[in-house]
Amino acid sequence: MSKVLIKGNEAVVRGALLAGCKNFFGYPITPASEIAETAAYYFPLLGGTFLQAESEIGAINMVYGAASSKARCMTASSSPGMSLKMEGISYIAGAELPCVIIDIMRGGPGLGNIAPEQADYNQIIKGGGHGSYSLIVVAPNSAQEMCDLTMLAFELSDKYRNPAVVLADGIIGQMMEPVEFPEPVQTMPDRPWAVSGTIDSHHLICSIQLDPDMLEAHNLALQAKYARIAENEIRYEAIQCDDAEHILVGYGIVSRILQGVMEQLRTEGYKVGLMRPITLSPFPTPQLIAFAENNNVKSLFVCELSAGQMVDDVRLAVNGRKPVHLYTRMGGKVPTVKEIVEKFKESI
């Protein structure tokens, strides 16, 4: 197997280029800057465009413009920058344009710090912009997935004409791991709706519908699309859940720590499993419902680097059938395996 030791942030750029992405628009922000820096180097080498925009607002609107064309495009940022992109994301979702947005989450609120957090969950999953839109959101937990899920994000984004977000945290971006890179995608999906500067593409890209009947119809069509996505695109990893009495739930870097927690608890005789959402939107609700309905399962234990945001979705799925415990750290503090093991034991 031919592997390369590489940072998550750099794997993202390789993945994007292997997925045929041609245009990158970004604005520097720690801990996502390496993505822009790497893109600045490699995009032109492969015939693409890299442009440092005037702001995240500029960048997301450049993405809106480029996404209206035939070519794939992307941007990358971190939490404060994502707040600025929200207007543009709402427009892109409304106009149903495919693009990929990388968010390497850092500590908040406000300027916060540059350490890892997962507190953009609500902003990204619940729609930080206005309107009833949903994004496709994938949550890598390794450098390999930073490549693979970026590529998947491009694929799904084109398939459903919907913006897709790769939601990672500072550690997943900074960490180096072996990555096996696939061959480049050679054929791009057709975009018959695109504005491409030809006689048969006098199309209109817009999100405005003055007539309430038409706007409601548009919204219903969007919701139907999100339902289709939920039906077909949920991805998750369940480790040792078959005999588990307690299900640990976490995504991104937390899922890696929980893996250690699970291994530790198993050696001590606890029957625990790990459920890791890979797509946060669509959320693996049916799988969580199955745990809630499974007589073996006594409780769920959610760990997050926020005050507890994803836990709301877990609780909605479980719907009171089983206790859902929560342990969180914030401000860039990352819990140790030992710490979570103790908290877990207190919870049961």
Partner: peptide, 18 residues
Amino acid sequence: VGNIQAAHGRAPAVATGY
């Protein structure tokens, strides 16, 4: 022609991207 409708004030950025 080909038409893209932009957010308030962002047309030059949208134009740039396109």
